[in-house]
Design a protein around this nucleic acid. Structure first.
Lengths: 209, 209
DNA sequence: AATTCCGGAGAACAGTTGTTAACTGGATGA
DNA sequence: TCATCCAGTTAACAACTGTTCTCCGGAATT
């Protein structure tokens, strides 16, 4: 049952999205704690006071951006990790590479604000990453290699993988930021990331020795 | 041959250090790209224009902070990694834990600005971390387990360790930031970090299989 | 002893910031 | 049809920003 929005609410969501888009663009060259309210409204093309109709503060906007950047990514990560065998690493690296290429500003925002100067945003990102770790852990538990593993150890391993994914995403980003983004450079990062994940997987296989 | 500084240069270095200290304190609750020049001078207790006698801009000050935070850490990391056997991981975790406890603001600054909004600072941090990776790689090469390893693979492993150290440092930091910092919480982080490093070491031992 | 140097102070500049209050006009619901 | 709602506007506020130029007084140099 999809409820058709009134033309009023539709317009509101439209300008709200315009706020998110404009902020994300501005955040490519600064961090959230220096993002001004007027700066955003100027970029959108509305009066400064219009901002308050959508967000309490720029920190509030930042939390909304976290949801936009990570919210829809959970199913993708889940199905990718669900892949069995050696293919899993290949697909994971490709997922990251493609996602960074498709949404570089989102990735930059998350990497930047994960340890940034705005507490509510840091917390929102931390919660989302913890969710990723739990989901990855749940998928890893289905592997035959997970036999004999404690819940704690599985979560430790899952966090290792999630952190590694974020580091890899950040490296792909630097690849795009370089003055002459070359496919060769991207491939180099992909190969290093794959080898690091393979090394971690090897450690996992011999954990119970 | 230690050259005694004139009372003029000595005074200059003193206020310069005051700038660094004040900035570091202010950066506990914001990021560098929102740090104002007047804000810093006000905290130091000097006129705004005095700032220019020491730094071109706040970005310049940030680069100086990177050197202060990471510059003197290289020998410590080197000797810690030089430790052989199972003791290496224990010492590494303790080094990180102690360093975070002793210089929390420095660690926070590095974690925050590594992906922050100020390019020159990002580059300075990236260069320093690359140096750490090279040094760690050089120490790892001395291990008997390094036999048959390519230069590339050693560097890949070293980067994995360095990134892992930074993640661990950041987790120790969160431990201190909690409303009621408990020794139990710190110990929990230490145990997880040690297990993650042990898992990586296991992967290393079976890499050439 | 006389001169140069230079870290810091003071005042002023135009431009920016977040937030408030009162208002407008088209969509909404009775 | 008419009263209500509400996203966005306009105007104004005090407070703040980075930067320039001019000046001072003590250290450094000759």
């Amino acid at each position: 049952m999809s409820h058709t929005l009134g033309i009023r609410q539709a317009q509101k969501q439209k300008t709200r999205q315009a706020f998110l888009d404009a902020a994300l663009a501005l955040l490519e060259e600064q961090s959230l704690s220096s993002l001004g309210l007027r700066e955003v409204t100027r970029a959108v093309g509305v009066a400064p006071t219009a901002f308050y109709r959508h967000f309490r503060s720029t920190a509030d906007l930042g939390v909304a951006l976290v949801d936009e950047a990570l919210g829809s990514l959970h199913p993708m990560v889940r199905t990718t990790v669900a892949t069995a065998g050696a293919e899993r690493i290949t697909r994971a690296v490709r997922l990251i590479s493609d996602h960074v290429a498709a949404h570089p500003a989102h990735v930059r925002f998350i990497a930047r604000e994960r340890h940034g100067g705005v507490q509510p945003v840091r917390e929102a990102i931390r919660d989302q990453l913890a969710r990723f770790a739990e989901e990855v852990g749940a998928e890893l538990a289905k592997d035959p290699e997970a036999e004999g593993w404690s819940e704690d150890d599985l979560l430790m391993l899952a966090h290792l993988y999630v952190d590694q994914m974020l580091i890899t995403a950040s490296l792909f980003l630097e690849t795009l930021e370089s003055p002459e983004p070359s496919e060769a450079e991207r491939e180099r990062v992909a190969r290093i990331a794959a080898r690091q994940m393979r090394l971690i997987s090897l450690g996992r296989q011999h954990w119970l020795d």
